[in-house]
Nucleic acid binder design. Structure first.
Lengths: 239, 239
DNA sequence: ATAAGCGATTACAAAACTGTCAAACTCAGG
DNA sequence: CCTGAGTTTGACAGTTTTGTAATCGCTTAT
């Protein structure tokens, strides 16, 4: 459960937000004053801070700055809630390290949606390609079969990566040369055959039956799409 | 340099945004139509998408859904630009996976600030990086192996810092030059080899077997991810 | 059945890559 | 101005990777 710290001096708005956000499943802690907000933060370690800019005793912008300056708190997302709608106010707020800036009056449901965005795991760009027990990790340039690393050369890796990223699609030798070797390269298309062979020798479990790479007579090659059933049976075969 | 894709049918607004964002240092690509936006995305691989919701030929919400549905594009942040200001519209947009929702008319500078938020590294950089008995302290610019300080030069330190902060990820010599030496620097990529050599001489325990820095033939170098088991055995070996 | 066409396989020489070394260069401080 | 640490380049050798040609073997069409 996520813990949200709410710093807001208007008692009505404070209560309204507390009620609605608790109903949404958040754990709320907070203060109606800016004094000691950073210490409170250090004690409570909230997952997000909702911060009013105009507080009676201190400036929300200063609190934001203070939080961003402490390494142990700096990562906490901050959302400003404020009536200051001028361009300058917005820019300052956002450039001070806030993650969002919501102008009063606002819709509660929009606030909730924007809070959830902060908690949304921003999915990393697809790191790994998987098919059955075969796994290709783009960032580390490694390939695993059933958890065991398979050593591939750079060209082999790029070819496999290209095909695995587009399962089922058939590519001519020329297309593969363009994609993997580069448009300018002057390379015989028979070269592709050799690399497909080398890949097969390294990644296929056995030479009987259809494997990962499919030859399409007269057209080229493709990476075999695997149905769930096939994937399962293969996983068994390797065990 | 970050690449932004702008999909906006209003020619005036399109030109205005293109001009201002290019001035801000972003590389702009775009379309004034929603048709084929996803294909364009796949080709261009932008780092962020600015998306008008009301397009003459298609719905921005559908485009957003389509992008979130493709694994290779799903990670790209999307900011909606729209005149639809109703609560329902905002909620739908945000819950569809958009990262921000800006209502027209808006301030260009606010848009820029909100774009920069998307590019901001979300988690605070760690003060110290550790891997096995190797420890790098960013604030004091020092490196320790098993508590014992290792003297590194500034460039050696930056290279090690860059690699240690991204364990397992392979970088080409060119990427390393960009990151450690700076984009402008005119330096041969053989320089990287020499620094890797020197780093290895300084930080590796012995020259047998794989150490901290992995050479990936044909690609570049990476810092070896260490499993807990490896870390422990290494700690023993050094004791 | 036969020939033609195409993919699979093998072997080999050329090219590329990395680790290493030593020399040249830069630049700040004494 | 000299010195020395830090940086960069070029060269070299050992190894791996790469592309090609030649051959084999299967499939298809005649």
């Amino acid at each position: 459960m996520k813990k949200i710290m709410l710093i807001e001096d208007d008692a009505d708005l404070y209560a309204l937000l507390k009620y609605n956000l608790e109903k949404e499943g958040f754990q709320m802690v907070g203060a109606q004053t800016g004094k000691g907000a950073i210490d409170l933060c250090r004690r409570e370690r909230p997952d997000l801070i909702l911060l009013d800019i105009m507080l009676p005793d201190s400036d929300g912008l200063d609190i934001c700055k203070g939080i961003r300056a402490r390494p142990e708190l700096a990562h906490i997302p901050i959302i400003f809630l404020t009536a200051r709608a001028s361009e300058a106010d917005r820019i300052v707020g956002l450039e001070l390290g806030a993650n969002d800036y919501i102008v009063k009056p606002f819709f509660i449901r929009e606030l909730i949606a924007r809070i959830k965005i902060q908690f949304r795991p921003q999915s990393a760009p697809q790191r790994t390609l998987k098919s059955g027990i075969l796994e290709l990790d783009r960032s580390s340039c490694r390939v695993f079969r059933d958890g065991q690393e398979i050593a591939l050369t750079a060209t082999e890796f790029r070819l496999l990566e290209f095909l695995m990223a587009r399962p089922g699609v058939v590519f001519s030798r020329e297309q593969l040369l363009d994609a993997v070797w580069g448009h300018d390269r002057a390379v015989t298309d028979r070269t592709v055959d050799v690399y497909v062979l080398r890949l097969r020798q390294k990644i296929e479990l056995d030479s009987t039956g259809p494997g990962y790479i499919r030859s399409v007579r007269g057209f080229g090659y493709s990476f075999n799409e695997m149905s769930q059933a096939q994937e399962n049976s293969e996983r068994l075969a390797s065990a």
